[in-house]
Design a protein around this nucleic acid. Structure first.
Ligand SMILES: [Mn+2]
Ligand SMILES: [Mn+2]
Ligand SMILES: [Zn+2]
Ligand SMILES: [Zn+2]
Lengths: 144, 144
DNA sequence: TCGATATAGAGACTCTTTGTCAACTATAAG
DNA sequence: CTTATAGTTGACAAAGAGTCTCTATATCGA
C-alpha cells in the first residue's frame, strides 16, 4: 500500500511537522476505509471511537496537512461535501469516478486515454497540465 | 445564441412558473457575461446596478430554477464557489475547462474524444453515463 | 379588472469550514 | 534524563455560502 506510520513520520519531519497521535489516528481511519471516499465529518465520527477527545478542527487541519503532503487527495462529488481518499499517485494507480445519480454509489475506473488527451490539450492550447479531474455521472447497474 | 426572453417566458410557463423582472435581469446578466463563469455573489453585484432592490436569496433561487430548466449550468472550479454559465448543450457546443493554478484564468476547450471515452466506460462498467465533468488544472501561456 | 397563485425581500438560520488562543506535547539539545 | 522551544491541540467563536420562513406583492389567465 505504500504508506505506513514511519513513512508518515518521515514525511512530516521533512517539512518541520511533528508526529502526533491525532494525525496517526486520522490517517489510520482513512487507510482502514480505503475503499470509501469519506467526508471530514465521517472521518471525525470514526476517529472519535478511538480517540474521543479529538476536536473537529484537528480533523480539518490534519486533512489539509495530509493533502499538502500528497498523502491524501481531496475529491468533490458535487454533493456539497469535501471527500478524501488515499493518494495512489506514486504507484501509477490513478483512477477516476463514476457516480450514480440515483443511489450515490461510486465506482472507480482507470482511464488510459487521458494521457493522450492531456498531450493534445497541451499542444493545442499552450497550457501545461499538472492535474485533471474527471467524473462521470449516470446510473449504475442496479439503477438503470 | 438560442435564448431570448420570450423563450424563457415559455419555458417558465411550461412548468407553472411566472416571468418576473428579477428573473429577466438575472438571465440578462448571465447572457451579457457569457464569456465569464460567474458566482451567485458576482451575479448579485451585477444585477444590483440595474435593480438595486433585489435580494441575494432571489438570485440563489433564480439560479437554481434556471439550472433546473436547463438554461444555465452549474460549474465547480474547486475554489469554494458555485459558478454558472449558459447551457449550450442543445447546440452541440459542449466544452470543458482549463484552469490556471497561478492566475485563475479559465480557458475553454472542446474535447471530441470524450464521446468514445463515454462509450468505453458504458461498455466496460455497465454504467449509463448521462453527464460528465472534466477539468484540467495547470499553467497558462503567461504563467508557465 | 380581479382573484388565485406564484414570487419577492428581509433577515434569521443552517452547516461546513476557518481563526484564535491558552494549554499542551513531541522532539532535539544539553 | 531534563529542559527548551516550536509546533500542535481542543474549545469556542466566527466566517461564509447557501437555505428557509413569513408576509407583502406581482403576475397572468379568466
Ligand atoms: Mn476513488
Ligand atoms: Mn465555460
Ligand atoms: Zn445506483
Ligand atoms: Zn495563468
Amino acid at each position: 500500500m505504500g504508506i505506513d506510520m514511519e513513512d508518515l513520520r518521515k514525511r512530516l519531519k521533512e517539512k518541520g511537522h511533528k508526529m502526533t497521535t491525532q494525525r496517526r489516528v486520522i490517517l489510520d481511519a482513512i487507510i482502514e476505509n480505503r475503499d470509501e471516499h469519506l467526508t471530514p465529518e465521517e472521518i471525525y465520527d470514526i476517529v472519535k471511537t478511538k480517540y474521543p477527545e479529538i476536536g473537529i478542527a484537528t480533523v480539518y487541519r490534519t486533512l489539509q496537512l495530509l493533502e499538502k503532503l500528497n498523502i491524501i487527495c481531496r475529491l468533490n462529488f458535487d454533493d456539497g461535501y469535501n471527500r478524501y481518499e488515499l493518494n495512489y499517485d506514486s504507484e501509477e494507480e490513478q483512477h477516476h469516478h463514476l457516480i450514480c445519480l440515483n443511489c450515490g454509489r461510486v465506482m472507480e475506473v482507470k482511464l488510459d486515454h487521458l494521457k493522450s488527451l492531456e498531450k493534445q490539450i497541451e499542444d493545442e492550447n499552450d497550457f501545461k497540465v499538472v492535474d485533471h479531474n474527471v467524473k462521470f455521472f449516470g446510473y449504475c447497474t442496479d439503477c438503470q
